[in-house]
Design a protein around this nucleic acid. Structure first.
Lengths: 343, 343
DNA sequence: CGCATGAATGTGACCGGTCACACAAGGCGC
DNA sequence: GCGCCTTGTGTGACCGGTCACATTCATGCG
């Protein structure tokens, strides 16, 4: 252990080499586990490393070797539950693999701003993971220069993506399908949908899962209400829907939206689930404790983050385990906010 | 612009130098804005930079200069609203200053695990910001080796900290004081408190603000209920408190806790705010949309994050603006969950 | 008019690692 | 006993920047 408290320049491999009476290259061999080093030599070097408190300089390593053992996560937001959970999953897997995790927030979806952020991420050196659930993220994913190692966390693709696109996703189309079927099975004539902003111009995966379930059941398909990400958007959409007496079931693009809808229905004097059933999406931690508690579909965001990192890891390193996506399937969680329609 | 699509090795300053017909040092001068470069020369260099699509290699810069323009944020969690908002504030300020933001999650509060994370952060090179609201964070803050540039985001210190400790905080003691006074002013005999895990063995700042308000009002001081961070903890604490008929006002250490308490009171058949008033802490985005909507104290977490970065920036660079903490004061937000006690 | 001064530019070393290769010593086959 | 391969170790160049210093040339001043 280094007991000389002085904050001097940290020891380099040459310092260690001098202390151990070998060349710097031998030290390099020891710290990299190279086989042809005599055990006694290795011993001396390890002792010197310990004594000097040597730690390999990550910057120099990155410069010399080209490998930087770092990931930068690009995301439009860090506070939304889903995004934050994905980030946490990525960090967890990265930590296990001794990778550093950087973060870049896409504050605006404007092209030049997005391009600047992508550049910054590229400058950082390592791999890039883009959370592409929203326009900013999708744009960022598209703006990453070819050749850079990048993985996208995306919505369920409309069709199984060609080739081996470096994408991961939770099956949110299936999740929307399940939730919609649940509501229909309760006897509702149809299910209205309050949508999160779609990531592309085309229909989002969640929307299409909902649509598919309606179609299969022969239920009429109301126009989805385009909303925002937060409860305020859900509240606004909910006030609109509350005016329509025929609305008895509402599926929301996420739990925050559902919260806003619940509040709007409450303000409009419509009881849940007595008059209107509501279901959310994501199973955020607070959803179980709302009154009424929220029926929702649990998505494994943390696992999704881990899968994203694993995929990137495989791209960056030959030796990395190339596991298939171990993202668990969505799970419908039925709580108090859904029930049969009023008779 | 670089239009040759080939993904070859990016241009270095020597490539630019050759293209512009100058030495690499001159290129270095141009990109660093050194004054003594002839305008015509500067022009040629800039043209070459543009043509080759040159970008300064951050890794090499860090290695050669020692300055890495990077911050690592150590936090116990990325999904809780307060933590995530602080992170977002840090990132925002860091981005404005062209700093990279890294993140390390303190998954366990165990000493060796914390020490390992701190080491990783130190290895990253730049400054460190520790979110020290919980035992893991506090331990991490203490484990940072002397001499490293570090800023702690802490609870309000018990006494104005000696010297110029590199700490920032929102005035959460004042916030708790305000919330408690609000409840007392409504006529409640006393206010019960459901506490977040205290960051130290001693009493947390929020607890002491609450206690101070009670003392000033001459109200009896019930034993605070020690809880966790999430709604589940609040729920458990709330079920206990609901058994006690004399409880008419409950202050919660954060909004998630308050949510759990609201649910517990609902389950116990006690109306809010008719029989019991509840107040939270933080003003999370969903709190305004709960039913009943939650009275809470808004804390400027984003500003706190920005302040933390500004302070660190000042430590790392002479030239950085050394602004005083611009963290806004806590603001009481009165909503539906608080009212006069039952008569 | 000569020399000190400063602007504009170039050269070599260095940051702390890795990589490619050279080289010495020991074991083995022929 | 000679050559050859293997094992263990050292040397020099390099990654892409910065820094300290040297050099050149024009200018100002005594």
């Amino acid at each position: 252990m280094n007991v000389t408290g002085h904050t001097r320049r940290p020891a380099s491999i040459r310092d260690v080499a001098t202390a151990a009476g070998v060349s710097y290259q031998t030290v390099s061999r020891v710290i990299n586990g190279h086989p042809s080093v005599r055990p006694s030599t290795r011993e001396r070097v390890l002792a010197a490393i310990d004594e000097l408190g040597f730690r390999r300089n990550a910057t120099a390593l990155a410069l010399a070797s080209g490998r930087s053992r770092a990931v930068t996560v690009l995301t439009a937001n860090t506070t939304h539950y889903g995004y934050a959970s994905i980030l946490q999953g990525i960090e967890e897997a990265a930590r296990a693999a001794s990778y550093a995790v950087g973060i870049g927030v896409l504050e605006s979806a404007e092209d030049t701003a997005v391009a600047a952020e992508v550049q910054r991420a590229a400058d950082a050196g390592g791999g890039i993971i883009v959370i592409a659930y929203d326009p900013a993220g999708v744009r960022a994913l598209g703006a990453v220069p070819a050749g850079l190692p990048v993985v996208g966390v995306v919505e369920t693709p409309a069709s199984p993506p060609g080739g081996d696109r470096p994408w991961v996703w939770a099956d949110d189309r299936e999740a929307a399908y399940q939730a919609t079927r649940h509501l229909l099975a309760l006897g509702h004539e149809t299910v209205h949908y309050v949508a999160i902003p779609s990531s592309t111009r085309r229909t989002s995966a969640r929307t299409s899962g909902w649509r598919q379930a309606l179609k299969e059941a022969g239920a009429p398909e109301p126009r989805p209400a385009q909303s925002s990400w937060g409860p305020a958007g859900g509240h606004a959409a909910g006030l609109e829907l509350a005016k329509d007496e025929s609305v008895t079931a509402i599926l929301c693009g996420n739990d925050d939206l559902a919260l806003g809808v619940l509040r709007a229905l409450h303000e409009a004097g419509r009881s849940v689930p007595g008059e209107v059933s509501v279901a959310g999406f994501d199973d955020a931690p607070h959803s179980a404790f709302l009154t009424p508690s929220l029926t929702t579909v649990r998505l494994d965001f943390t696992g999704l983050g881990r899968a994203a990192f694993a995929l990137l890891h495989g791209v960056l390193e030959e030796s990395a385990p190339v596991a298939p996506h171990p993202v668990s399937v969505p799970e419908l969680v039925v709580r108090e906010s859904s029930g049969p329609p009023p008779s």
